[in-house]
Amino acid sequence: MHQTVAPSIIQGPSLRQRLAARGFDAVTLLVVPAAVFSLCLFVYPFAFGLILSFEPKSGGWLSNYVRFFSDSFLYDTIGKTLWLAVPVTLLNLVLAVPIAFRVRLMRHQRLLTTILVLPITLGTVLVAEGLLNYLGPQGWFNRTLMTFGLISQPLKLVHNYWGVFASLVITGFPFTFLLTLSYVTGIDPALEQAAATLGASAWQRFRHVYLPLLMPGFAITFCLSFVQAFSVFPSAVLLGAPAGPTRVISIAAYQAAFEEYDYSMASAIAMIMGFVQLAIVVAVLASRGLFYRGPASGAKG
């Protein structure tokens, strides 16, 4: 009797019990299929692409990167993409902030937010197709401007930089706005009321109450919107000048993969694209600390 009980006392709880105490049991295992899926189809391709980019068709292990940074047709794409993505993202954010502050006071926000979800849902291909007509020389936009006598010649708005710019505003602004709105409405209105009671003007309330609290949210909104704009592809081809001023980095990656069938080079360009996005995101999130230090989420109501 003693001999049968004693070993289990020495062993303590079984492996199953010890694992359960750390949160591993049958329920935890439910996460395994999705985790394996993500590892196989997200992490593995990334790792594979990274390694593949160092195994070029010809030359040393770095020759894909050497080629990218020595061929102006390739390295210029970084500058061209940034020249599109940064102004668009800043414009979208600058427009979204005052509008979000106004819409916050609205009772029936739902209609406006529904309208703004439309371009996100329809996607860039449809927006490009629509703008091709709408902004074209015979389109309603130019026609309206000419009717009002604002211009005498139709503006050239498609197949150049401005076409892509417009499509990025149409699809990007609602995205930026809805994110901003969710951050703005997350701040306790009592804080603003307290500031108003103490005699702060509207600008002072924004500058000294809201802005410091919203800075982390704005930084994240900027990052997400920027990353979306930086990876512009269909509208740069359809609405822009894909051989000239709107030859963005995703076009270069696509051409390497599906026109030259050089998957190694395409992976290298995709890695460079990811790296530039990461660099900007890290820079923005790091500079966030320059604006405000201290608890920001404590005010969320």
């Binding site: 990334f46 594979f48 990876s231």
Partner: peptide
Amino acid sequence: LFLLPLLIPPITFGIPLATV
């Protein structure tokens, strides 16, 4: 791991994924 595919734009991870 589950957040990254939503934050990284599809075209960035799409090219290595298509290669695989």
